[in-house]
């Protein structure tokens, strides 16, 4: 360090010394700079009184650790959810149609009902709402029972699909709650 810079450093250290640790005897120039420094410090204290106090910070606790959710874990969860949805969809698709008048609604050995009456009835009247001529009551009851069974099975299939998705979501929620954030 050369001499002028050492002198300047000493002068600045003296001029900016804290009030409780004065920098010792100083020349007039240094004293006037020190006076400006003290006035500046008083302004800072008056304008920001909290800065000089030992006021605790608003959140006096260490920041939480970063989330441990890694990309592979998230991808694995998303894949398992997709598989669950696909399985549920497949189960639902393999179920018969709930339409009781459709082909799946027929009972073995029972003649299928005609879709339109041959005796010139109005087509707006659904054929299954009234008994056809020569149809026995037993056949009608069997057809209705088959339709009810079909609808019930389809509903069960939907419930299974929904429960698979719900199970996947519950697993995801449990993983999120268990992992320390």
């Amino acid at each position: 360090m050369n001499h002028p810079m050492a002198g300047l450093e000493r002068q600045m250290e003296q001029a900016t010394a804290p009030a409780e640790r004065p920098g010792g005897p100083m020349d007039e120039e240094t004293a006037s700079l020190g006076e400006a420094w003290l006035a500046f410090g008083q302004l800072l204290e008056a304008a920001q009184p909290s800065a000089g106090l030992a006021r605790p910070m608003p959140h006096a606790s260490p920041p939480p650790a970063r989330s441990r959710w890694s990309l592979p874990k998230v991808l694995a969860l998303a894949a398992s959810l997709l598989v669950a949805i696909a399985v549920a969809w497949k189960v639902r698709g393999s179920k018969p149609s709930p339409d009781p008048a459709g082909p799946s609604g027929q009972v073995a050995g029972v003649e299928p009902r005609q879709s339109a009456p041959a005796n010139g009835q109005s087509p707006s009247v659904p054929p299954q709402t009234e008994l056809a001529w020569n149809d026995t009551l037993d056949n009608e009851i069997a057809l209705a029972g088959q339709a009810v069974m079909s609808v019930r099975e389809d509903r069960l299939g939907l419930a299974g699909a929904a429960s698979s998705v719900e199970y996947g979501l519950q697993q995801l929620e449990k993983d999120i709650q268990d992992s320390p954030l």
Binding site: L44, Q48, S50, A51, L53, A54, P56, M57, A60, S61
Partner: peptide, 15 residues
């Protein structure tokens, strides 16, 4: 952490 917040926090905020 407590020292940083209590001792140095006000100075950091003032700065």
């Amino acid at each position: 952490w407590a020292d940083w917040g209590r001792v140095h926090g006000p100075a950091v905020r003032g700065y």
